[in-house]
Computed example of a mutant assay.
Amino acid sequence: MSGIHAKRECGGNCIIALITSDFAVYEKVVAELKSREMPFITLRVGEHIPANVDVVITTESEAGKIAWEGNRLVIYDDPVATVNQAILAEQKTEPSGAMVVGVDPGRRPGVAVLSGDMVIAVHQVSPTEVEPLVRRIVHDYRPASVIIRIGNGARLVTTQIINSLLHAGFKVELVDETGTTPHIGRDVHTSTVRDIIAAINIARIKGVPVGHEREVEPSKGEIRVIQEASRSRSEGRATIPRYLARQVARGELTIDEAIAMHKGAIKNGNGQNGHNGHDP
């Protein structure tokens, strides 16, 4: 993609420099850079900055003391966010680069973060954690723009995630996810890999913009599945009634909240044993 990757003046040996006298910042950033296996050097304020340094990390109080011809300066925030920003700055030409987040919906959605063609982070979270995760990603990387592309499978989960993202003000595209889930060989023993790869593929497909929140009206079968899930989640002690299952389907409650409400109603004599799943 044009305009995404920088033309390197430092050739293929570009590195990040951490320049600070703050020992606490030094320890945290060095540990994070090492965990990402990023090439870096550490310098004191005033030391010569080598020509192959492409990004400098420093503190706000020390930034004005750094004499450097480069323009990719990252001010320390927290270790993860700071290193994320440094990596992103090292990978793109200008701070106006767009970011795409792909979401493979399901019981545990896969989430992939792309800058240009490069995958810079992957996650797997619950459906209710997708929107907070996207907010954290935006905080950590601070892209000029972000688009969330979500697959059109798992109707209820997809709608819940879309509504939460739109409500938070994000741009969302709905993607036809046909063919995005790869074949997983017998030697791969986790579905997480499949979900993550599907999320990466979804992120790379232009979808249809979603302009407004959607109504969620679960079918009887979908409500039944949620009721069965509540029984399994509570180890057979409670099956939430249909009206609570409907609220879970609409994203108004989590299944744990619905179970707690149902147990509370039974304890107070306002509900009934949930084993048959009928509305009280």
Rank of each mutant, 00 (worst) to 15 (best):
D77C: 03
E215W: 05
I196C: 01
R194Y: 00
R36M: 09
P39R: 11
P182D: 07
D279W: 01
G11K: 09
I75T: 10
S61Y: 14
F23A: 14
R36E: 10
Y243F: 08
T180L: 05
D104Y: 02
T59G: 01
D54G: 15
I259N: 08
V111K: 07
M118L: 15
A24Q: 15
G97A: 15
G251F: 09
V208H: 03
N71L: 01
S219P: 08
N270M: 11
L18Y: 06
P109G: 05
H275A: 08
P218R: 01
Q85W: 06
I223W: 03
V216C: 14
D176C: 09
A249G: 06
I4L: 07
V172Q: 13
M1C: 06
M99Y: 13
K206L: 09
E257Y: 07
I87N: 03
R250W: 08
E94G: 08
C10P: 00
P209V: 14
I200E: 13
R155G: 08
I162K: 07
T254G: 13
A6Q: 07
R36L: 14
G264F: 10
A67H: 08
N201T: 00
A245D: 10
V134Q: 08
V103T: 03
H123Q: 09
A238V: 12
P79H: 04
V53G: 00
W68F: 02
G277A: 15
H167E: 15
R233H: 12
R107Y: 11
E222P: 05
D117A: 03
D117H: 04
A63S: 15
K28V: 02
C10Y: 15
R8K: 12
S126K: 15
V208E: 10
A245R: 04
P182M: 11
H212Q: 14
